[in-house]
Each structure stands twice: as structure tokens, then as C-alpha cells.
Design a protein around this nucleic acid. Structure first.
Lengths: 193, 193, 193, 193
DNA sequence: CATGAATGAGAGTTCATTCAT
DNA sequence: GATGAATGAACTCTCATTCAT
């Protein structure tokens, strides 16, 4: 496939992303994407054979974006607790975001249960999050800001809490205060003792 | 509707439950349930107008079952940490259960986002879990088994971790060891300090 | 069938009449009538095998009512033109009546085209109307109020105009003024010349 | 939609017309039309979303045809009474036509009562008929063939009689002689006096 | 490559009609 | 007689997928 093809494919994936954000994964039809992209039915099938294929690309793209530049607004010499607070604030924003969120689509996609171990982006991102957190915690311990006997366990625990908050937000709903409370509890567990 | 009708309704709900366990919520059709129940199309519509209606009944039933008899196998004078360990073991079983789990169906059902505040069973169960845990922790503190400065915060934290484990199990998959590790971390946080 | 059965049959017919008035003939289902009568499905089928059968009875009943007592409010020595005016006013009322009208149901019923010559109530009523009008006109001629060379032709003409107004009212709609104009034209044709 | 699509649309409309002629409006299903056109279910829905939509097109087409070329067989210098006679003969033909008549379908369509004022073809055609007749009558008066004090009233009266004859023909049935008698009565009213 | 008309399977829903009780 | 649960045919509508152009 030439460069032009790649461009079109990217265009489709980016446009389809908006559709998935809007409607989740399950209820999106090839028609929806055809309409959103304003291309022909047959044209779409030249590039993708199903919504699953398209969504897989959307996921890849999303991860690439997440791997992007480091957070701005943090001074290079910021305290570790500030960095952690920043990280959690970002998570909070994403958890509470009503619009522009792929969360539901991602869950629905993974519910199908036919994801290969290897390129399981969701798992990869979770594991990456654990490592980032663990490193932060170790940094904090070193700098005397944090106290933690089991940095890996704490990091993992935090990630599961975040996951729990995320799913709660998309199912039963959750208030900002409730999220704050949980995040505060987490911070306290590290800083205080 | 007479007694007999109620029986049939129950039969449909119970049979449909299996279908939801098998296929989640979204992909279940009225046809699926008709076939599973071995009744006629029209026959099903006498009792339920949509899969949503049926699933709502399934949920009610499930909750009723959860409210059932207290755990067996625990001596009346069991230590609080044993009771908590039992509670977590039950949660673990449910989290890892591949068969007979409504989890995915429930998530898919709540993703629709049209659940009234009042009879939001998922939220109710979550809140009930928090209260149960909080009470356990307070009991443990009283008996000197646990140490915890913020029992409510800890209870809520544990429930979100469990939720995070649950969704992880149904999406990326999770090993028993990984669950054990999280639960151990939780127990340790209460007992140790 | 006993007396009780006859009573029930009458009850069904009278209740069904309201349904036909409400919804016309075509869109009325046996269910509609079952619900309106608050009887069982099977119960209805004991008396009638279809909506057509029921409607045939409704028609019979309607005719019986039309054959009822003569118009009140007219002095025994009323002028013929007054009687005709009264007759036309009644027709006008019925033509413009939005509620409680069987008109559409009747048309829909006869559109099926399987009406036996013999008990074609619609035709009978039309013919009866012609005779009534013709007699009125002859009376009017005798009393010097009317001038008409062809009383039967005039009577028939008037009945078709009324029919035309009736169908217009139920399809394209018609204003009271438009009906008045037509009726005035008719009266003028008799009285004037 | 290209030219080819327009052709197909026309084909569907023309084919559907036959179905409506055959079965009226109410009892025609999308299936009926699919079968008559020998296309697929989905194929029909590409062009029309309901029988109502299709019938609306059928009506438009019918009107377009009615607006077609002027009557043949009439010499340019024909007497007005001949032209009127021709007009009435055409109406008579249409009133008595058993086959190829949309009349019942049209009535059933308009019974639904959701027709916008603006494109109410039935009313437009009625009004157009009144104008045509009124002009004829005025022509006849000018040429000394007709006598009429109220040309508009007479024209409107004639149109309602025709409408009455039409609905009678489709409900109770009507003989050619009966139609002739009415038309003769109309002509006589204009010519004679 | 790209188009979009066409297909047909399948889901939802309603209804006349039957029949065991 | 009376009930109302049950059936299955029929209808509407949508979608993934194909294919001639």
C-alpha cells in the first residue's frame, strides 16, 4: 500500500475514533463509519473488514499518543509527591471525562475476549502504569517524601483502584468528590506514615 | 397473572440468566431467549418486552440470592481477620469465575446509562459492600486485630480494588496469583501496622 | 343462545362500536375489542369470529337507531322548506362531526367489496334518503314552496352531494362554510325558480 | 442518486402502483411491493422507507399524468356542451372503472389524516376540477348554450356529485345507468332552463 | 482503487386463532 | 360457557458483505 493508502487509512481510523467515542464499540456499525468518513461502503472494506479491525487500529493510535511527550507544567526539579499528584489528577480527569472518552468502547472491545496475549494494549498500559507508579514511589522513598514497604504492591493497588473508579464512572456513575476521596486516601497512604 | 404465570416468568428469567452468563448482555436477542426457553416468539412477549426487561429481572433475582443466608463454614467466634479473609476469598472466587458469571452482562447493561438512581442495584451492592467492610474493620480494630486510621476510606479503597480486579479479569484476564497478591496487600495494610 | 348470551353479544357490539368510531375499521384488532370489552380472547371468539362480523352487527344496530323516533323540535305544521332545512342541518352536523362518527369505519368496511346485495345497509340507507327527500320535494311542490321538474333526480342529486361532502370531510377536510355553501346551493335550486 | 437510481425508483413506483390498484392502500405491505418488484427487502428500503412514501410518489406521478395532453377527439371548435359532456364521460369512465383504479387506495391513504395542507393532491385536484367546470360553464353561458346564475356554485355542486358517485361506486357499487342518470341531471340543469 | 446498488439473513414485534383447563 | 396462555405466521427494518462498473 502506498503512502496515499496509508493516509486514507489514518483518516478512517481518526474519524472512526470519534464514532467509537460517541457510541462505544458494540453499537458501531460499518455504516456509521462509512457515514462519518463520507466514503463508500466498498471503499471502507478495501481497508478494513470489520469494526473490530478498525478499533484495533484506533487502540494502537491511542497508545502511540499516550506515549507522547512528557507532562508539561511540571518543573524539572518538582517534588515526587507533586509528580504523583499530577499523575493522579490526569487520571481523575480521564475518569470523569464524559466526552471524548474511549473507555466504554475499550471495555466492550475487550469483553469479546479474543485478544491475543501479545498485543494486548490494555494490559500493556496497565503494566506500564504500575511501573511508572512504582518508580515514582521509589523516588519518593529515596527523597524522603514517601514511606512504603512494598512499592510494587502499592503501585499495583493504586492502578486497580483507578481501574475500579473508571468502570464505576462508566456504569453507576461517580461524583468528583468520590474520586477525590479515593485519590486522597491513596496519597495519604504513601505520604503520611 | 396467576401463580402459574409467575412460575413461567421465573422459568424464563432463570433460563435467560444462563444466556446472559454465556453471551453478556448486548449480544443476547429475544430469539436467543426464545430458543433457550423453548417457547414461542409470541410467548416470550407475553412476559417481557425486551432483553432489558428480562435482564432487570435477572438482576433483581441475583440480588435476592446475594442477600441470602450468611456464610457457612465460619465458626460463630471466628476472628475478624478470618471473616475478612473469607469475604475476600469469596470475592476472589467470583472474580476468577469463568462460568456462571454475570459480570460482563452487568457491565454491558449499565453501559447503556439509563439506570434510575433509585434501583441501581450495582451501586447499591457496591455501597453495601463498603458498609460490610467498614464494619468488619471497626470490629477488627476493637478486637485489636486491625490497625486503621480511616476505616471508611479503607473499605471504599478495597471495594474499588475488587472492582478493578473484576473488570481486569473480564477484559485483559488475570491470574489467580495476581488476585492473591492484591488481596494479600490489602490484608497486610490492615493487619500489619 | 339464551337471553344472557344475547345480552353479552349486545354489550360487545356496543363497546366495539366505540372502538370503530375511534380507529376506523381496518386498524381495529380483535385484541382492541377484547381490551375495550374487558373480556377474554376466547370469550370474544365464542360470539364473533372476526372484526368483520362484529362490524356487521354494529352496522345493523346503527341502522336500527337511525330508524328511531322522528325529529323533535319541528311543529307538526312546519313548512316543507323548514323540514328540508332541518334534514340538511342534521346531515351537516354528521358530516362535520369529528368524534363519534362511524363514517370512516363504514367506508373502510365497504371497501373490502364483499358485501351481499341483500343486506347492504349503506345502500339501503342511501336509497331511503332519496325517497325521503323525494317525498319532501313533492310535498313542497304541492304546497307551492318548491319548484322542481324532476323530484327524483333532484333527491338523488342531493344525496350524492351529501355523500361527496362526507367523503371530502374525512379525507381532505372541509370547512363548515364550504358545507353551508353547498347546502345553500341545493336549497336555492329548489326554492327559487 | 444517479440517473439509473431514478429509473429504478420510477420502476418501483410504477410497479407499486399496480399493487395499490389491486389492494388499496392499507393492506399493502412492503413485502407485497418487494415481491411485485422482484427486488430484495433491503433493496426497496434503499429507495423508500414505507408504503406511505411510495404511495405519495404514486400520487405525484398520477397527478403528473392527469396534467398531461389535452383530450383528443374533440374538434377545436367543439361546442361547450360537447366539451362538458366529454369531461363528464371521462369522469364516468373513471368512476365505473373496476381495474386500474387507485380510488380506494387514495381514500384509504387520506383517511390517515396526516396530509399537509400544501401538497394535498386530492384537494388540489378537486379544486382544479371546480375551476375547469366553472370556466366551461361561463364559456357556455357566453355562447348561449348554458343558463346558470351561479357558475361557481354549480361547478362545486357537480364536483361533489362526482365525488359522491365515486365513493358509491367503490362501496355499495353503482350501475352505469345510475351514473348516466346523475350526469344527465347535471347537464339538464345547465342546458335546459 | 473506489463506488454504491443490491442482497439476504436475522432481529424486533404484533396478531389471529387455538386449546387445555 | 369462559378463560387467557401459547403458538406461529407475517411484517417492519437494519446490517454486513458482495460485486458489477
Amino acid at each position: 500500500m502506498g503512502d496515499k493508502s496509508e493516509q486514507k487509512k489514518s483518516y478512517i481510523v481518526e474519524t472512526a475514533r470519534k464514532v467509537f467515542v460517541e457510541k462505544g464499540f458494540r453499537s458501531v456499525t460499518m455504516q456509521d463509519i462509512v457515514e462519518a468518513c463520507d466514503i463508500s461502503r466498498g471503499g471502507l472494506y478495501l481497508y478494513f473488514g470489520s469494526t473490530e479491525e478498525i478499533f484495533a487500529e484506533v487502540l494502537k493510535l491511542s497508545q502511540a499518543e499516550d506515549d507522547g511527550p512528557l507532562p508539561e507544567g511540571l518543573p524539572p526539579d518538582a517534588a515526587v509527591s507533586d509528580i504523583l499528584a499530577y499523575f493522579l489528577k490526569e487520571q481523575k480527569k480521564e475518569i470523569l471525562r464524559k466526552k471524548n472518552s474511549l473507555t466504554v468502547a475499550i471495555y466492550e472491545y475487550y469483553f469479546r475476549g479474543r485478544v491475543s496475549k501479545k498485543d494486548n494494549l490494555m494490559k500493556n498500559q496497565f503494566d506500564a502504569g504500575v511501573i511508572i507508579l512504582e518508580n515514582m514511589i521509589r523516588d519518593g522513598i529515596r527523597s524522603g517524601e514517601f514511606y512504603c514497604e512494598n512499592p510494587h504492591g502499592a503501585a499495583s493497588n493504586i492502578m486497580y483502584v483507578l481501574e475500579g473508579l473508571r468502570i464505576a464512572a462508566k456504569t453507576v456513575g461517580i461524583s468528583e468528590a468520590a474520586v477525590d476521596k479515593e485519590l486522597f486516601y491513596i496519597m495519604q497512604g504513601l505520604v503520611f506514615e
